[in-house]
Design a binder for these strands. Structure first.
Length: 572
RNA sequence: CGGGCUGUAGUAUAUCGGUUGUACAAGUGCUUUGGGAGCAUUUAGGCUGGGUUCGACUCCCAGCAGCCCGACCA
């Protein structure tokens, strides 16, 4: 392809963006921002995206059948699963003006995922035990109403996703397929060049199962997720599920007499620690929750930690938890928001103590009296020790893995894939069952498996770049070869470089030929570095009968013949 | 969803209650041509709506949009 003809040119200057992928992809003419979180893929960018999707397609074809489902779907489907009201990233279409409204006033869901479409689809075709197992997938544009988009292609409101759904006659079969899908996924990331840095992390299984889901996380500083790695077991946990043991601190002090201190308007542990002139770890955060509408629970955790509501939900074995209303808080603690503690609460309040509030001495705690905080509280003296301490906090850097007592290694990562055992959540919602060999109706088990090609494109740039630009892995580079012609006003040079271009393309090699007459050598070289195609070839009056060959990830160039070039590129 | 900031040319910025200045990009001409060339010249701008004012790009209000921090992310 001729560089002079492609749409989307490199820019000399561009805005400062929050991430390497936004900077280089925009500057290099791969993508163009339309609004926060949506981008046009220009010629180069679309080629990369297509390559990524084709790798995904080739591998997923070994375990599923490709189809294509629509983006706009009726709301009724989402009502059936109850998700119309609950999924907080869900968007819908609505007629834009009175004329459109007069023609058709329907509103449709803009799909963020496709369980609601694929399940009834499967139900139309596959109802016999003979049909199982089977799996369907598509690669398609998804819409999510993200509250905050950022980091170029890493988080947008419209993005590309491969979503695969598997259907099974037994739970066991679902699990076998699920395990196998991990291998297929790892192979995909290997082929995309990010295999070395991509790990499987345990993540939340959602509200309907105690199982973990599994995330494929690429270790990357721009990533939004935090992984907690246990070296001895080789297991990575997403922060949201990492079991946590807090460091043991301030436990050796002699107990001092309890004191209530007035601190009107001092709310929040950091402000409080400052006010009392104590480390934040000696404060205690107490939150009052209403559980399933009929229980009131006080949860205490060491200052500096946040409560992990997923963990809490599991400890309480409940469906729904929410922070108590002002009225409930006032009724059970006798105080306004900000002064709750776990001393002297009425019997109706269950108390859950995180293990982090233990192993400390002379700590602060809300006094359950508006404007007052108690200090020098000691567990076992001022409050009876509980039967059990729990782990209901969000793990943080410095914490230990409870089972082995080893310190976590903590790192940032970006999620490139996610697989999820769905069990019968969706098949039940659509009353999708099959008739087994014995003539009886039985439940169908499902799994879902996602990969985000557009995000992967961004992550690859995050991982492979230098100060000059992108360094694409060969499998996803927009072209295999970047051919630069210099001195093109000289007819003999021009015909030589055209011949090289023709020989290469005739061999089926993808070549981007920089044929511009008005760009200087420096311009062409720096554009080549920015665009990041793995192999750069130069033909000029200096190269004579040979061709200059240089790899993007190497410094040295060498002069070789066209035959040698063909050999090297074919050998790859 | 909470907090903060910003809307001036294609991009990045400056100044100003009274004719918006500059750089890059783009166009033209000449020179240049192995690491983002030079000179000359041309084109191009105050987000939308309302208010205050003799006069608003500037001040005020609302809307829309973008950016940043945090929360959220089956």
């Amino acid at each position: 392809m001729l560089y002079s003809k492609i749409f989307g040119k490199t820019k000399k200057d561009s805005k400062k963006y929050d991430s390497a992928n936004a900077t280089f992809l925009i500057k290099g003419g791969f993508i163009d921002q339309v609004m926060a979180g949506t981008y046009t893929y220009l010629t180069l960018g679309l080629r990369v995206l297509n390559k990524i999707e084709n790798v995904v397609r080739e591998e997923i074809n070994t375990i599923g059948a490709e189809i294509l489902m629509p983006s706009i779907v009726p709301q009724e489907l989402w009502e059936k699963t109850g998700r119309l009201q609950t999924v907080d990233v869900l968007m819908k279409t609505t007629p834009a003006n009175k004329f459109a409204l007069a023609k058709n006033d329907s509103e449709y869901v803009l799909s963020p995922t496709h369980e609601e479409v694929v399940t009834p689809l499967a139900q139309k075709f596959n109802l016999s035990y003979k049909d199982f197992p089977f799996a369907l997938y598509h690669i398609q544009t998804k819409f999510r109403n993200e509250p905050r988009v950022k980091s170029g292609l890493l988080r947008g409101r419209e993005f590309r996703m491969k979503d695969l759904y598997s259907f099974h006659a037994t739970k066991k079969d679902m699990k076998v397929y699920y395990e196998n899908s991990k291998k297929v996924y790892l192979k995909i990331f290997e082929r995309l060049g990010i295999g070395k840095d991509t790990v499987i992390a345990l993540a939340s299984g959602g509200s309907f199962t105690d199982d973990y889901s599994h995330e494929f996380q690429t270790i990357c500083d721009t990533g939004e997720d935090t992984l907690f790695f246990v070296k001895s077991t080789g297991i990575y946990y997403n922060r949201e599920v990492a079991p946590s043991l807090a460091p043991n601190i301030y436990s050796k002090e002699k107990p001092l007499p309890r004191k209530d201190i007035k601190g009107e308007g001092i709310i929040g542990v950091n402000e409080l620690a400052k006010f009392l002139n104590i480390p934040v770890e000696k404060t205690t955060k107490t939150m009052i929750y209403e559980v399933d509408g009929n229980r009131v629970v006080a949860v205490a955790v060491r200052g500096g930690y946040n409560i992990n509501e997923d963990k809490l939900r599991k400890v309480l074995k409940c469906k729904e938890i929410k922070l108590a209303s002002k009225e409930t808080l006032k009724r059970v603690t006798g105080a306004e928001i900000g002064y709750a503690g776990i001393i002297g609460l009425p019997k109706e309040v269950e108390i859950i103590m995180d293990e982090s509030i233990n192993n400390r001495a002379n700590v602060e705690m809300g006094a359950n009296k508006t404007g007052y905080h108690s200090t020098n509280i000691n567990l076992g003296r001022d409050i009876p020790l509980p039967e059990k301490f729990y782990d209901i906090k969000m793990a943080k850097d410095g914490d230990f893995f409870p089972e082995t007592k080893e310190k976590y290694q903590v790192m940032k990562a970006a999620e490139v894939g996610n697989i999820f055992p769905l069990y019968t959540k969706f098949t039940e919602a659509f009353d999708y069952k099959f008739i087994d060999q014995d003539g009886k109706e039985k439940p169908i088990y499902m799994g879902c498996y996602g990969i985000g090609p557009s995000r992967i494109m961004g992550i690859i740039v995050e991982k492979f770049n230098d100060e000059k630009g992108i360094i694409w892995p060969e499998s996803v580079a927009p072209f295999q070869v970047h051919l630069i012609g210099l001195d093109l006003n000289d007819e003999s040079i021009k015909s030589k470089v055209l011949k090289v271009y023709k020989v290469l393309t005739d061999k089926g090699i993808e070549v981007l030929f920089d044929d511009r007459l008005d760009a200087t050598a420096g311009n062409k070289f720096s554009d080549a570095d920015l665009i990041g195609i793995p192999v750069r070839l130069v033909v000029s009056k200096r190269t004579g009968e040979k061709i200059e060959y240089k790899r993007r990830n190497e410094k040295e160039a060498k002069l070789i013949s066209l035959d040698e070039v063909l050999k090297i590129i074919k050998g790859n």
